Each structure stands twice: as C-alpha cells, then as structure tokens.
Computed example of a mutant assay.
Amino acid sequence: MSDSNTTDFTNPSTFILLGIPGLEKAYIWISIPFCAMYTIAVLGNFTILFIVKREPRLHGPMFYFLCMLAITDLVMSTSTIPKMLSIFWFNSREISFTACLTQMYFVHSFSGMESGILVAMAFDRYVAICNPLRHSNILTNSVVVKIGLAMVLRSGIVTLPYPFLARQWPYCRTNIIPHFYCGHMAVVKLACADIRISSYYGLFDLLSVIGMDVFFITVSYTQILRAIFRLPTTDARLTTFGTCISHVCAILALYVPDFFSSLMYRFGHNVPLQFLVLFDSVYQLVPPMLHPIIYGVRTKQIRGRLLQLFTHGET
C-alpha cells in the first residue's frame, strides 16, 4: 500500500482513506459506538421490512413509504460504515478509483432518495388529514409505485454527474482522502485543477433537490396545520397531529445533520478536520438508526406487532 502524496498520476488506481485524521489512537474506542449504531440500524430497518411484509394490516401507503425509507437507510449506511470499520479494525485504507466513484454515487443518490421519500410521506400525511375520505382513492398502490420510481429516477439522474465530474479531473498531487468514505467534495478537492464546476453542481444539487423537498414538506405541513387548527376540540387536534410526530422526527434526523455537514464542508474552513469528519459520520449513522426506532415507538401498529413477536412469538 502506497501512502505517497507526491505521486504523479492522472487517474489514480487507488485512493487512501485516512478515516478520522488525528484520532487514529482512539479508533478502537470510536469503533464501539459506531458498530453498535450500525448494528441497530441494520436490525431495526430489517425488522420494519419484516413486520410490514408479514402483517397484511400494514399494507398501505404510509407503510410502503416506510419500507422504501428502510431500504434507503440500509443501502446508504452499508455503502460507508463497513469500510469505515475496516479502517478502524484492520487498517484497510485502500479503495480502488472505480470503487471510490461507485461509493460516491451510492451515497449521494440514496441520500437524495431518502429526502424524496420524506416528501412522499409528507404528501401521505397531507391527504390523510386534509382529504381523509379520498385517501384510498388518491394514494392507490399504483400511485405509490409511481412515486417511488420517480424518487429513484430523480435522484439517480441528478447524482450521475458526480462520478463523471470527479473522473475527469487530474489528480497529480495526492491520492490520500482525509475521510472514511469517498464523498464528492472530499475527492474533488484532491484534484490539481479548477473544480468550481463540481462545487457549483454540488450546491445546485443541494438547493434544487433538498431545497425543493424542504419547500414541498413545508407546504404540506402548512396545509396540515391549517386543517388541524380547524378541528373543534384540543383532543382532536393533538390526536391528529400525533399521527405526524414520527414523520417530523424523521425529517429532523435527516435534514439537520445533512444541512450543517454540507455548509461546514463548503464554508467551515476554520473548523478542525476531525470535527468535520465526525459530524459527517453522524449523518451517515444517526438517521438510519433513529428512523426504525422512531417509527417502532410512535406507530401503534408496528409497536403492537413488535410486542406480539417478543411476548408470544410469531403468529
């Protein structure tokens, strides 16, 4: 394995992932909570998929969207965390150029898909609260499938320029990435060329995809709150808004770390590198871990099925 940072190459055969620079002596201790969170994320999301598949009463739009979210969380976290743990445990830092670009594509595309699925879930809540009598007619199974395909295509197409842009730059200074995965900006910053087009496209992606999704979610919840405040009693308002709590928590778990991570990588020039990388790891781990916990605790049907499995076994 070569750690040289002065090699002349245009497209390196491998990159070297440093993990979390400056914290190498603490890798074993850092790996313990990271491994625990990843295990919880995998088990939790597979549990959601299993319960929805085996329980006919959960075969509805909200739970189909929840399954899409679980699959997205599994793919996104598995794209980065196993490699990070291999760096911590086995010092396995090499990643091929092609694998690096593939990882980049999966991380950014599934991040966009996750955001789109939260928009779809917001639309489901809007229809369920503002047009409850038409919910089953509006969100049919075919419509849910079309929404899911639209989210996949949108994110897949918008993210496609990332690896192509990264591949075209010459990398003549270093192949060492001070991170635990191949993020778009972490890779292109190594290029010895003017990478403004990559940076601008990243901002365009952030504003057009995430910004648009946040706008649609805001519009949906504005309408939802208007409908809730028109309800006659406080109990009815609280009960109705309670059906949205899980979704609101899922939104915060995704967008808050994503927003601050994107801003710090572009504008946080005085922020210590190890803090940036640690914060990015929060974005990779916390939403996939929290989403099944949030929905498992807050959703009565899933909570009831879980209790049934643990207390009486599968029926």
Results as ranks from 00 to 15, higher is better:
Phe164Glu: 08
Phe164Lys: 14
Phe88Gly: 03
Glu114His: 11
Met104Lys: 09
Ile177Lys: 04
Ile147Glu: 00
Ala166Tyr: 06
Ile177Gln: 02
Pro163Arg: 09
Arg154Asp: 03
Ser155Gly: 05
Cys100Ser: 13
Met151Asp: 04
Pro132Gly: 08
Tyr171Ile: 06
Val107Arg: 02
Arg93His: 09
Cys130Trp: 04
Gly112Asn: 01
Gly116Val: 02
Val119Tyr: 00
Thr98Tyr: 10
Pro163Cys: 07
Leu165Lys: 13
Asn137Pro: 01
Ala120Trp: 06
Ile177Asp: 01
Cys100Gln: 07
Thr174Asp: 07
Ala166Gln: 06
Ser142Asn: 08
Ile129Asp: 07
Asn137Met: 08
Thr98Met: 10
His135Phe: 15
Gly156Gln: 13
Phe123Pro: 02
Ala120Tyr: 09
Phe90Met: 10
Ser142Val: 14
Leu160Trp: 15
Phe106Glu: 09
Leu118Glu: 01
Ile95Gly: 02
Phe110Asn: 04
Val145Thr: 08
Phe106Cys: 14
Gly116Ser: 03
Asn91Lys: 08
Ala122Cys: 05
Thr140Phe: 05
Ser92Pro: 02
Met113Glu: 12
Arg154Thr: 08
Met113Pro: 05
Ala99Arg: 12
Cys172Ser: 12
Phe88Cys: 00
Met113Asn: 06
Ile138Pro: 03
Tyr126Asn: 01
Val145Gln: 09
Pro170Phe: 07
Tyr126Phe: 11
His108Ile: 06
His108Gln: 09
Trp169Cys: 10
Ile177Ala: 01
Leu153Phe: 13
Cys100Trp: 07
Leu165Gln: 14
Glu114Gly: 13
Ala122Met: 03
Leu139Gly: 00
Ser136Arg: 15
Pro161Val: 10
Ala99Pro: 00
Asn175Cys: 13
Pro132Ile: 12
Ser136Cys: 10
Met113His: 06
Val143Arg: 08
Glu114Phe: 11
Gln168Asp: 15
Ala122Pro: 04
Ile138Lys: 00
Ala120Phe: 10
Ile138Val: 15
Ile147Val: 15
Ile147Asn: 01
Val107Tyr: 12
Thr159Val: 14
Cys172Trp: 07
Gly116Leu: 01
Met121Tyr: 06
Leu101Lys: 13
Val127Trp: 03
Ser92Met: 09
Ser109Val: 09
Phe164Asp: 07
Trp89Val: 01
Arg167Tyr: 13
Cys100Ile: 10
Asn175Thr: 08
Met121Trp: 05
Glu114Ser: 13
His135Pro: 03
